[in-house]
Design a protein around this nucleic acid. Sequence first.
DNA 1: TTGATTTCCGAACACTGTTCGGTATTTTAT
DNA 2: ATAAAATACCGAACAGTGTTCGGAAATCAA
Lengths: 198, 198
Amino acid sequence: MTQSPRQKRHEKSQQVILDVAAKLIVENGYENLSLREVARQADYSPAALYEYFKSKEDILFVLSEQIGDQMLVLMNEVPASLPPLERIVQLGQVYIRFAVSNPSKFQLMNSLPSKRKSLDEPVSANSPYKLVLNAVSAAIKSGDIKRPKGIHAEEITYSLWALIHGASMLRLTNLRDFQADFEKIDQVAIKTFLKGLE
Amino acid sequence: MTQSPRQKRHEKSQQVILDVAAKLIVENGYENLSLREVARQADYSPAALYEYFKSKEDILFVLSEQIGDQMLVLMNEVPASLPPLERIVQLGQVYIRFAVSNPSKFQLMNSLPSKRKSLDEPVSANSPYKLVLNAVSAAIKSGDIKRPKGIHAEEITYSLWALIHGASMLRLTNLRDFQADFEKIDQVAIKTFLKGLE
DNA sequence: TTGATTTCCGAACACTGTTCGGTATTTTAT
DNA sequence: ATAAAATACCGAACAGTGTTCGGAAATCAA
């Protein structure tokens, strides 16, 4: 399992390329990422990048995974000791705040489809979704919310996800430059949804 | 206000270009639209397109307005005679269905920011948003839902929009190819949110 | 030290959106 | 009808893109 010096250098070079790419994406948006500019700033020829990634899409994919990890770190900072409902609200707010503060990263993170293809397959651990799912399950167990007929914790989590994801996306596209107290409105929205579950 | 033959031909040519562009967007996604391919299929040289539109972005902008109109037509088919809450639910479902049936169109439609920059400015008439706003106002007047403290019909409408928009976007990106009974889940989600407003 | 593998680059290919100069064509004014 | 002006259109070019290929160094394993 230990890596040779060559392998270590290889991975290091990969990360250098990824870091430059991430920097450029933050600066210019991910749809404007230029591999040639990445190569320039990483001191490679354009062709050399293909020694480390098989395509531009491949770079974006790896990057989107790393960004998911960044989101997870932030969401993990929400205290587990919070009352179940309050915890769900705060998780949602962290999600939206990340989106608004890192528009390009957020959009890249969500541009690629998940590997999970149905409710039967297991939820990937250490994902933001899993975090919210756990919080929802806890709120059900504590009796803070109840499941509608035929609806399980997963469906509730998905609906919450839709709500906060939609709020995020609207802020980045349609409502870019729109002035309003979104922090407050979004908070009420999440609470309203939870209230609908008693 | 009557147009000269030249103006009429000009507008006709514009629409030919837009139609070809729309076709290609449906086929290949709007981020892959090639102006040169549009020119080929519309029997123009690439340069000639610039007699009708000042840039690719301009074409996409006009197209996104036309797509918004298409969405509006579908949402207008939801009977106004429905009970207020049921009407809101169905408006949301039409929105999501349009997104899922026309992924590229939907994404283009939402890729450009709205002209409205704050709640003070007037809502543009004949927009999907206005339609939902009216339905929400009606539901408030009829007493089917109540406004939380400090929240007005607009904020409720925005939250509903976030919910259905998020559900739509998730279906097109993260949950592409994911198998589940989304029609049912989304319906319950909207009803749950409305229930949270009593 | 030889041979194999990895790293890296220059050049090229096939694209892209856009601009510019010039030529027809069509409209407007005289 | 004629001259002038505005519009429509195109070929060629510019600067950029992602990607592939052949070959040359460098590094590793035998």
